[in-house]
Design a protein around this nucleic acid. Structure first.
Length: 378
DNA sequence: TACCATGATTGTCG
DNA sequence: CGACAATCATGGTA
C-alpha cells in the first residue's frame, strides 16, 4: 500500500532536526521514477545509512550547531541572499499550481457511495447500522426481509471498514501536514520560506492523500458492486415451496375462494405456518388469483380436492369451524373476486364463475381424500 | 431439450 | 399501497 510508504518521510523528518534537506519533501507529489530494482535498493540503502548517521548524532549537538548557525554574524547577509534567489524561483513555482475542477471520477465514486448508503448522511453508522437497517427492512417494509438482512449486514460491514479507513487516512493526513508545516516554520528561521510555499506543500500532501482516499473509495465501490451482484443472483434463484407449504396455502385459498384476500394477520399466520415471508405469501396469492382466473377449468379440480379435504376436516371437528386455525386470525377485505352472494367452501362458491358447471363436481369428488396435494412435487 | 409449473419482478391503476 | 396483469427466470419432468 502506498499510504504506508508515504508515512515514512514523516518518520524520517522526525529525526531530522539536524539538517536533512527539505527538497526531498518537494518530490513528494511527483510520480515515482522507474529504475531497475537493484539500483533502487542501493539508493534506499544509502538513504537509510544517512539517516542512521544523522540519528547517531545527539540532539543536543544538533541543536547547538543550529544555534551557532543562527547566531553567526554572517547569517543576516546569507539570509538576504537566499531571499533574493528565492524571489526569482518563486515565480516559477506560482504558475504551476491552480486549483483544478473536481475530478469527475471521484464525483462518480462519491455519488455511488452515497447512493448505496456507504457514505453520506448517517443511516445508523458503524456497527449498529446493520441492526438498524435490518430493523427498518423488517419493520417498515417486511418484504424479503430475510434476504435483505444479510445483504444489509454485509453492506454495513463495508460501510464500517470504509469509515474506519477514511478516518485513519484523514488523521494521518492531518498529522503529517501539521508536522510538515511545523518543520517548515522551523526552517523558515534559517532560510526564507513564503507562506505560499507552505500552502503549496500542504496542498501537495492533501492531493497525495486524496489519491489514496480515491483508491479506498474505488475498492469500496467494487466491494459493493460484488455484493450487489451476488445478492441479485441469489434473489433470482427460485426455490419451489415445500409440498406442505403449498398445501397450507391452497387450503386457505380454496376455503376462502369467495374472497381470497388474506388480511395482514392472516398472511403473517400463513407465512409462519409455511416458513416463508409475508411477501412470499402475498406473491403466492397474487399469482394464484390470477392463474386461477385464467384457468378455472383446471383449477376447479384442485378446488374440489381442497374443498373435499377441508370438508372432511370439518366433519371430523363435528360441526366446528372447518379451519379454526385460519379463521380465528383472518380478516376479510371487501372484494369482488367472486360475485356477491357466492360463498366459498361449497359449490355455490364457484357457481358464479364463468365457464363452470353448476353441477356436482363437488359431489363427484366424494371423500376420496386428497392425498398428495396434487400439484407440486418436492 | 422442450415444455410446463411456479416464484419473483415490474409497470400500471385506482 | 395493494391488486392486477404481463413477463422473466428457474425448477422439474417427460
Amino acid at each position: 500500500m502506498e499510504d504506508q510508504r508515504l508515512m515514512h518521510p514523516s518518520g524520517t523528518m522526525n529525526n531530522n532536526t539536524g539538517g536533512m534537506n527539505m527538497n526531498q519533501g518537494y518530490n513528494m507529489g511527483q510520480t515515482g521514477h522507474e529504475e531497475p530494482n537493484d539500483q533502487r535498493k542501493q539508493e534506499i540503502g544509502d538513504i537509510l545509512q544517512q539517516i542512521m548517521t544523522i540519528t547517531d548524532q545527539s540532539l543536543d549537538e544538533a541543536q547547538a550547531r543550529k544555534h551557532t548557525l543562527n547566531c553567526h554574524r554572517m547569517k543576516p547577509a546569507l539570509f538576504s541572499v537566499l531571499c533574493e534567489i528565492k524571489e526569482k524561483t518563486v515565480l516559477s513555482i506560482r504558475n504551476s499550481q491552480e486549483e483544478e475542477p473536481p475530478d469527475p471520477q471521484l464525483m462518480r465514486l462519491d455519488n455511488m457511495l452515497i447512493a448505496e448508503g456507504v457514505a453520506g448522511p448517517e443511516k445508523g453508522g458503524g456497527s449498529s447500522a446493520a441492526a438498524n437497517a435490518t430493523a427498518a427492512a423488517s419493520g417498515g417494509q417486511p418484504d424479503s426481509a430475510i434476504e435483505h438482512s444479510d445483504y444489509r449486514a454485509k453492506l454495513a460491514q463495508i460501510r464500517q471498514i470504509y469509515h474506519t479507513e477514511l478516518e485513519k487516512y484523514e488523521q494521518a493526513c492531518s498529522e503529517f501536514t501539521t508536522h510538515v508545516v511545523n518543520l517548515l516554520r522551523e526552517q523558515s528561521r534559517t532560510r526564507p520560506i513564503a507562506p505560499k510555499e507552505i500552502e503549496r506543500m500542504v496542498s501537495i500532501i492533501r492531493k497525495k492523500f486524496a489519491a489514496i482516499e480515491m483508491q479506498l473509495k474505488q475498492s469500496t465501490c467494487e466491494a459493493v458492486m460484488i455484493l450487489r451482484s451476488r445478492f441479485l443472483d441469489a434473489r433470482r434463484k427460485r426455490r419451489n415451496f415445500s409440498k406442505q407449504a403449498t398445501e397450507v396455502l391452497n387450503e386457505y385459498f380454496y376455503s376462502h375462494l369467495s374472497n381470497p384476500y388474506p388480511s395482514e394477520e392472516a398472511k403473517e399466520e400463513l407465512a409462519r405456518k409455511c416458513n416463508i415471508t409475508v411477501s412470499q405469501v402475498s406473491n403466492w396469492f397474487g399469482n394464484k388469483r390470477i392463474r386461477y382466473k385464467k384457468n378455472i377449468g383446471k383449477a376447479q379440480e384442485e378446488a374440489n380436492l381442497y374443498a373435499a379435504k377441508t370438508a372432511a376436516a370439518a366433519a371430523q371437528h363435528d360441526y366446528g369451524d372447518g379451519d379454526s386455525d385460519d379463521s380465528s386470525t383472518v380478516g376479510f377485505k371487501s372484494s369482488s373476486f367472486l360475485p356477491p352472494g357466492a360463498s366459498s367452501y361449497n359449490m355455490s362458491s364457484t357457481a358464479g364463475l364463468p365457464g363452470q358447471g353448476q353441477g356436482g363436481m363437488y359431489m363427484g369428488m366424494n371423500g376420496d381424500n386428497y392425498t398428495s396435494g396434487g400439484d407440486t412435487s418436492p
